[in-house]
Design a binder for these strands. Structure first.
Lengths: 296, 296
DNA sequence: CTACGCGGTGCGTGGAGTGCAAAAAAGAAT
DNA sequence: ATTCTTTTTTGCACTCCACGCACCGCGTAG
């Protein structure tokens, strides 16, 4: 029983005509007719009830075709999966992340990734909106929350935290707060996200305190928020990976290095999401492994 | 890709030797060698790493073989499952007949058929129009004429005849005709079929006579015609199977019990039609046999 | 060192599969 | 009704693939 033959059967069922299948395949109609007849002889039952004007699957034929359809599919997948074992990890991998995370965390990794996986080319889709992985043909998504639903695989890439930072000159002008409570006297820079607006949370030695904050400036973009903080417009609550470089360079100062800081919950992390396929393309696999190795 | 080929691959993996597989299958070792080589060429990767003394699946080959093994199994199961559908005298059989024949002849057989073939469920499509057997997924058709054309198998189910009948009270009011010719003086009930309209034929001892008939009432439905006859509206030419019960119950009287009666030809019969003798599902076969036994 | 058995290859032949053409048939169109 | 078109099926050459056979290279076992 040839798989090509079985695919012919399915095409016959789909098109409802031997002649149409023959035209589509560029063969003689007699070819299709004989193929079906031969399969029927081998199977021992009739697959299609046919007249000169119509071809209709029999009950047994419909049952058989319905059952073999996924099998033929999987047979092809088995071939592809096995081929990937020997194939070099090559091709284009589409990766999506937020603009800030992409530019600050992923872009610095690109040189190393290029040398480690020269055959893989990365296509970065940076967007602060949640891109549909299937519709966008996305292989890998980097998000700051795990997959809420569906057939996505979530792996924690790295733990993330927040820092309250301000610029040197802002501190020189307004004084450096020594305790979180002092922030209530400052006009802080805030995100428009509801979680970040009313209060910030601090934790040290297991003791948590919430500090109400306020300020005239609200921003929807963390890069802009960071820029504002660097410009000395006030203290800001920002992700640690976003301000690591600025802290190291001295452009920003971590106001409470001894405390954990959070907007809503303390348990935050960056997640790597990818669609749960039966067999992940090798090029995607190696990129995932590289990212986990570099960030995990 | 032939499933038999794929099974050969599995046997190679199991036995670890081309020659052993060749012996087991009774073919030449070169056959196995070439089969494997051809599959590898089609797949694009090597399945077995082989030396003169050992055959070992490659990593890709092992993965491929492991994945196709259950698929081949299911492929066979699909065949068996479908074959069982046709082999078992069980399931739904779609049967079409005219409304009158179905209700008067087939329905009385149903109780016996239910007990004789409890696993078979009958779906009756009663229609006075010629149903398309293919489009309607009909297994068996009961018609009062043989298949005029096509690849349908026709078997005569039972001979049928016609009777000229009238109700007791009609005869009391209009007198009982003693010879067919007397019908010309009656207003008879007629079918709208062209054959039945102008004259009725009678035969006794090989002598045929045609009697012209007329009447104001024409009906297109034999059940309505019978009802009209029962209601004393006049004599009617009706199929014997249609009036047998009424004659037995005395609701109708056979006016010419000694004669054969016909509308057009005397050779009339009920036919059983079914598509294609080859690969006839067993459930259809047993219903056909039952009907022939009960009516033939 | 020899012999056996293994996988791989060249070769000739028979049969399977191909397209073509014609037949049968069923629906559509006139 | 009758003709026409389209579709399935089958008969018929023809081609070419797949089969077994013989042989080669090679590694292991005795």
């Amino acid at each position: 029983m040839d798989t090509d033959t079985l695919k012919t059967l399915q095409e016959v069922a789909a098109r409802g005509s031997f002649a149409a299948v023959a035209r589509a395949r560029g063969v003689d109609p007699s070819n299709v007719s004989r193929t079906v007849a031969q399969v029927e002889a081998q199977l021992g039952f009739r697959l299609f009830q046919r007249s000169t004007r119509a071809v209709q699957p029999t009950e047994a034929g419909a049952l058989y075709l319905a059952r073999i359809a996924p099998l033929l599919e999987e047979l092809d997948q088995a071939r592809d999966a096995a081929a990937q074992v020997v194939a070099q990890p090559a091709g284009r991998v589409r990766l999506t992340a937020s603009v800030a995370f992409g530019t600050e965390v992923i872009v610095p990794l690109l040189p190393g990734l290029r040398t480690a996986l020269p055959e893989v080319s990365l296509e970065m889709v940076l967007s602060d909106e949640n891109v549909d992985l299937l519709a966008g043909q996305i292989d890998i998504a980097l998000r700051l929350a795990p997959a809420p639903k569906g057939d996505l695989i979530s792996v924690k890439l790295m733990d993330t935290g927040y820092r309250v930072v301000a610029s040197q000159d802002y501190l020189a002008r307004h004084g450096r707060p020594t305790a979180p409570q002092d922030l209530s006297a400052h006009e802080v820079l805030r995100m428009t996200l509801p979680d970040h607006r009313a209060q910030w949370q601090f934790r040290r030695d297991g003791v948590t305190e919430a500090v109400p904050v306020s300020g005239p400036l609200l921003m929807s973009n963390v890069l802009a928020l960071r820029a504002a903080a660097c410009a000395g417009l006030g203290p800001a609550l920002l992700a640690d990976w976003l301000v690591a470089e600025d802290l190291a360079a001295g452009r920003l100062v971590d106001l409470f290095p001894g405390r954990e800081v959070a907007a809503s919950g303390f348990e935050t992390a960056a997640w790597l999401l990818y669609p749960s396929r039966a067999y992940l393309p090798r090029k995607v696999r190696v990129v995932i492994d590289y990212l986990r190795g570099a960030l995990g």
